[in-house]
Structures are given as C-alpha cells and as structure tokens.
C-alpha cells in the first residue's frame, strides 16, 4: 500500500482527467482538424492544411471581434467596479448576515439563464417599468429614446449575468485577509488617501459615464453632443473622485488591495472569458450591428454550415483570450498570483 502511495493523487484525478480527455481534448483536436479543412456539408470535409480559413475568418469579422473585446472588457471592468465594493462590504461589514448576503449574490442562478435574460428584455424595454416612467411620466428623455437594442443593453445583460463570478472570488480573497493587518497598517501611520483616492475615483467615475453614454450611442459628434458628453464625463469624474477621496484609505491601498489581487485576477477571468464569447445577450438585448464574435460562430456553425470558418474563429478567440490573460497576469504581477503565501 505505502509503496504505491504516489499513485493516489493520480487516481483521484483520473475521473476528471478522463472527462477532460473525452469532452475537451478530443473535440478540440477534431476542431483543429476542421479549422484546416475544405469542402462543404453536402460534399464532406477534407483535411487540407487550409490556413486560408484563419486568414479569412480574421479579416472578415473585424467589427464582431471589436464588439466582443469592447463589450467583454467593459462588462469585466464594470463588474469589478460594482463587485469589489460589494464583496468588500460582505467580507468586512457583513457580520452575521454574511451567509445571507452571499446567498443573495448567487440567488439569480436559481432561475434559468434564458429566462433571466428575457426578463431583462422586458425590464429595459421601451414599455418597461424604468423607461416608461422616465419617458412618459417625467418626460426626461426624448420620446424615441431606447435602451433595448443598444450596446449598453448588451453590456448591462453581460454584467448582470456574470457579476456573481466576480463577487465570489473577490469575497474569498477579501474574507481571508487578517483584519489585524489593517489595524497594523493604521498603527503604522496609514491614514486617509485623499489625493490618490480622488484620482482613482475620478478615473473610474469618468470611464463609467463615458461608457454608458457611448453604449447608448450618445457620443456621435455629428449630433453636436460633444459638450454634453464632456460635461457628463466630468460630472461622473467629480462624483467618483469625491467618493474615492473619502472611501479609499492608505491601509486599503497598501494592504487590503495587494492581498485581494488574486481575487481580482480570478474574478476578471471568470467574467471576461464567458462574456467575450457570449452570444445570447446580443440575440435578446442587442441589434444586428452589436453582434459579437460568438454570434458569428454560432451563425457559421448552425445556420450556414460553414464549419471550418466557425472552428477557425473559435481558435482565434481562444488564442486571444490566452494572450489577454497572460498580459493581464503580467500587469497584476505574477508573483502575487502564484507566490506560495499563506
């Protein structure tokens, strides 16, 4: 028994490895072959080292790639901006309500993903509870104003969909920070962080406002909205700066933040990867111009039966994600993420 001890971990991993081999590795090999094949569904596919599939796929859908990157990135950024204070609040101030609050975070998962997205259609719709009130009752916005069908609606759907994937890893990272470390920092003269907090807060505030307005299509210069756009961004930056200056302390910047970076990394990846490849939110909340690369892949596979292009697109997406994660890990500092700290 003891002689074969070394086998034990492999035995424990075996079911998972077999599963991955059967349902991940094999299909992927098949996909690689498909992405380099020529032919048609009626005549059959022949493997031909046909790299044109890749070149074509890359060149033909620049808008969709851009949409994916921008929407996925925005969703991740906003999930982070919303999720971090949320996870922080639960971990540090949740007290005995921690479990309940965490349950509420994952509560949406108890409803089908499709139903949730469809209900967002209703919520954001022209006759939905928000817009109808804002437009009809108060007349704050023009009568032809819509949210549904805009990129903003797509990103809002993505944010809603994937927010728990951001909050949970952040919570785990924040929760295990020893609160005495923060006391120690305060003991060692870490006080408020007004200037840095103001800068960080105004950048975040400005970016969010700019993104919301762009998503709603309000950034077009032709309409002469530049002044209004700039004013709104400045206002957002001011509010963000004020919040940042008063809420971000030096002990947070020096201790809490660096110790929560692994959670930020995990959360961002868990949001970014599914968000960038998503196609359901565009289907239900977007418009034809806001189609993401996921929609193209789905369309190529299921409607046009253009398997090689679809497969090539999938691999380009995968490579892109891997490169993005690699760069991201470098930016956050690999040592923080892998260093064997307790």
């Amino acid at each position: 028994m003891t002689r074969h001890r070394w086998l034990l971990p492999y035995l424990l991993m075996a079911p998972g490895l077999l599963w991955l081999a059967a349902f991940f590795v094999l299909p992927n090999i098949q996909m690689v072959l498909m992405s380099l094949s020529t032919g048609s569904i009626s005549q059959g596919w022949t493997f031909a080292w046909d790299f044109d599939n890749y070149l074509g796929a890359f060149g033909r859908f620049p808008d969709n790639f851009r949409n994916s990157l921008v929407y996925g990135g925005m969703a991740t950024l906003v999930c982070f901006l919303i999720g971090y204070p949320m996870a922080y609040g639960i971990a540090f101030r949740g007290g005995r309500y921690k479990t309940l609050l965490l349950f509420l975070v994952i509560a949406p998962f108890f409803t089908s993903f499709l139903i949730r997205t469809i209900s967002w259609r209703i919520l954001l719709g022209d006759q939905g509870p928000f817009l109808a009130v804002v437009r009809n009752t108060f007349g704050v916005v023009p009568a032809n104003f819509s949210v549904i069908g805009t990129p903003l609606a797509v990103v809002a759907g993505l944010i809603y969909q994937f927010l728990p994937f951001m909050v949970l890893p952040l919570y785990v990272a924040l929760e295990k920070i020893d609160k005495r470390l923060i006391e120690a920092a305060r003991d060692l003269y870490a006080g408020p962080w007004r200037r840095g907090g103001a800068i960080a807060g105004s950048i975040a505030g400005g970016v969010v406002v700019a993104f919301v307005l762009t998503g709603l299509g309000y950034a077009s210069l032709e309409e002469g909205g530049v002044v209004g756009f700039a004013a709104a961004v400045v206002a957002g930056a001011a509010v963000g700066g004020l919040i940042g200056a008063f809420l971000i302390s030096e002990s947070f910047v020096r201790v809490t933040w660096p110790l929560s970076v692994p959670g930020v990394f995990a959360g961002s990846i868990l949001v970014f990867i599914p968000a960038i490849g998503d196609f359901v939110n565009v289907e239900l909340l977007g418009n034809p111009k806001s189609q993401m690369i996921g929609n193209v892949i789905q369309n190529r596979f299921l409607q046009q039966n253009d398997y090689p292009t679809a497969a090539a697109l999938s691999f380009i997406l995968m490579a892109g994600i891997l490169i993005a994660i690699f760069i991201y890990a470098r930016v956050l500092g690999t040592e923080e993420l892998t260093g064997g700290r307790s």
Binding site: R180, L181, E183, D187, Y189, A190, V255
Partner: peptide, 20 residues
C-alpha cells in the same frame, strides 16, 4: 484620535506582519 495620529506603536498578538 485614530491610531495613525497617535505616537504609539503596537506589537500585535500574532505579529500581523504584512505577508505580501
């Protein structure tokens, strides 16, 4: 006064060294 405004420092029970 908050801790960072007091000319006092503490050695904590389990040291509380910054692990990072």
């Amino acid at each position: 006064l908050p801790p960072f405004k007091r000319n006092v420092n503490t050695v904590f029970q389990n040291y509380a060294l910054f692990p990072h």
